[in-house]
Amino acid sequence: MTEFTVADLKDIMLKAADGTAPALDGDFLDTPFPELEFDSLAVLEIATLLQQNYHLVIPDEAVAELTSPRVVLDYVTARLRESE
């Protein structure tokens, strides 16, 4: 099965920030996106990159509920399990 790890998530988030996101240096998983300097457009870009890299279809309603990195991690993990 395809794994989705914290490192994978961090890679995606960095891609959405042109490789520089100082807020990802420490514990970031449970911090809401706005506090990590990821605005709603950046979260949409994260969803776009996830769709490209993991061949998922993420509906707009689901994107609206992706409020922190932990939520994204759990969401993607669950969706990948479903598709096994």
Partner: peptide, 12 residues
């Protein structure tokens, strides 16, 4: 660009 602009704004 990196000398003046944070990653978030560079990407966008």
């Amino acid at each position: 660009a990196e000398a003046y602009i944070p990653g978030k704004f560079r990407a966008q």
